[in-house]
Design a protein around this nucleic acid. Sequence first.
RNA 1: UGCCCGGUCGUCUAAUGGCAGGACAGCGGCCUUUGGAGCCGUCGGUGGAGGUUCGAGUCCUCCCCGGGCAGCCA
Length: 776
Amino acid sequence: METSISETRPTNFIRAIVERDLADGSTGGRVATRFPPEPNGYLHVGHVKAIALDFGIARDYNGRCNLRMDDTNPTTESVEYVEAIQRDIRWLGFEWDNLLYASDYFQQFYDLAEKLILDGKAYVDSSTEDEIRELRGTVTEPGRPSIYRSRSVQANLELFREMKAGKYPDGAHVLRGKIDLASPNMKMRDPLLYRIRHAHHYRTGDDWCIYPMYDWAHPLSDAIEGITHSLCTLEFENNRELYDWVVQNAMPSPHPHQYEFARLALDYTVMSKRKFIQLVEGGHVSGWNDPRMPTISGMRRRGFTPEALRNFAEGVGVARANSKTELAALEHAVRDNLNPIAPRVMCVIDPVRVVITNYPETGESLDAPYFPHDIGKEGSRAVPFARELFIEREDFMESPPKRFHRLSPGQEVRLRYAYIIKCIGVKKDADGNVVELRCEYDPDSKSGGTSAGRRVKGTIHWVAAETARSCEVRLYDRLFSVPDPGEGDVDFIEEMNPGSLKVVTNALVEPSVENDAPDTRYQFERQGYFWRDPEDSGTTGRDRPLVFNRIVTLKDSWAKVAASSAGDATADKQREKAPSANPKPKSDKAPRTPIQPQAITEGARKLIDSWGLSETQAVSLTEDASLADLFVRVVPEVINPAVAANWIINELPPVLKSADVDASTIDANQFAELIDLVDEGTITNLTGKELLAEILTTNESPRRIVASRGLAVVSDTGELRRIVAEVVAENGEKVEAYRGGKKGLIGFFIGQVMHRTEGRADPAVLRGLVEEELDQ
RNA sequence: UGCCCGGUCGUCUAAUGGCAGGACAGCGGCCUUUGGAGCCGUCGGUGGAGGUUCGAGUCCUCCCCGGGCAGCCA
């Protein structure tokens, strides 16, 4: 944990960046992150991902992570949220190095803004909101300057000071960065930096009547705190260019860097503050902490554990692709965490009475373990057994379907931890509802008894009628009945799941729960994980009523069987057949759109005519002026123009990019020499590519480098054969796999030889030799 | 429509140009005094077309699809 660089592969691309920066020292060996919520709402499961990332990186790389309230908009923020945010993060199990507030930097933000004005990089715009929008242009048209853009530095400074002094009403002026009104990135079209807002701020009170915008405050806050890696979600991608502009123009080095990742989305869930507010204010849920809400407070009240949530965040990973995670992944994390720690108890949610006619009036006490054999945990409790019991109504069926393994007339079932009983009679009321079952028990079938090992198909849970505690049980399900609530023209409220909460007031739980800590997470056997609602539940049945929240159900494979046999008996088989009867079109060969013939420009035509390039090559070349120019410079010096074109088109650009070099600076003679080296077969393609990167920054002749370092191609069969044999001998398993049909491994073997010859093995010769060796 | 970003099993996510792997879900089996858990097995993927290369998920070109940006919100 104290190692700064993990020895294992980083688990996501951001951690890879952090490790790279730590390795090359570009952040001075430091890692500093921050979690920057705006205190205008409650944290939700999407924030859990960000929190786990920000705090997790600081933890794992010996870094620091600040909690910073991004409180630059006085009209929406409050101390209530500040407190809730801290509570939620702590509950999740993370601790910040510093609790900070962007509002504490207001004076610095202001001073830096004055400096920016002095530098001529910001101006006060007195246009109206509508004018500013109008002049900003659109995504296809550039913006135009307002008449205020050319104000003098002095005028800007005076106006800005007067704005601060409260001389103007809201909206009279704004401060804007003077960047580029024609930028293709809308965020760079002279972004607003300050607006006038005569509003009371929950922390700074009435000290300020101008407030900084996010794009000014956020990068500066990061820079002030010495943040190295500023992580945010994908929608801020376009803001990065502005972020960099701000820190470069307002702050000394080193500068923080922003990296974006995909926000977490869950199916059957909404995840925006706006929608949460609608849910709460519309009375569709009981509050921000309604156990059906994906808020941290809601999930906490539901009974989710911090560890489950952290594991979930770890499990979904971090990437840049927009994605939507299945609810099943979250449920799995919760079950996985609870399974080994939740004691098993019995609770009958929909009771029906059972009388065991051959059981004595005096009951007995059974010792029942809290955990099943596979958990391997000690502990048990006493469970009273009696002549009259309750079982789950759905565990009895008068005329059961084929694979029903529970109680039915004449059939046997085991009572968990107790006896095998057989149903000998059914009592019904006038409406035909079952009101009581008459059963007989096998006295020898008790755990440890002579026929204890007797097998019956099913085991059901139960409680003794006399001693059971009545309780309320709240059964939660997904809040929405569709995977994408609010998608399209529909109101997401209309798509709420009417069955998302079922309250059962007459459930019966075994009495042992009265002795347990109030935050105990149970598994109610065969039903799911439950705990006491922290707000509405008493501890025992004697003070306030017991109220249990269902945290999550158990996986229920019976439900699937029941669902599939709900229709006709052959439903299963038909379902299996369906796919093959209707195979999905693997590839419909008809091209969707005809291939566009590439426009052959005059320049391209010329390249084709004078150098014999293909149309594709010519077109590619002419699309980039610097590349086309390079080609023209290089081609007189090379043997084969087509090879030169391929190198310029395919191999050069990535090297240029990674070396941050411009094509125009390339020495044509050297480049030509390199191309010829490859073309004439003196060096391999691979060696050529490596040399390419090198000659961009040095002035040495490729031919001389090849000679002095012995980089010439190895095509001597004897030499290559020896190395191939070596590799084959060292990788017996792979050889076997290859011979077993895994032909893709040919790449592995060639790669190995390439590696050992440092890329100098002649590929064409090599492949033949490897195949020969492997196939013998 | 201009710019930016993205597209790998049903879902999420890996793969210095060299074995397309893991998790969840599904299916099947074993085990089981929870139709739970566990164990084993299995199904299943590089959006498309060209190009470069001995070798492409990865590099180049074009196309298709998805997301973001035109708040004095963050």
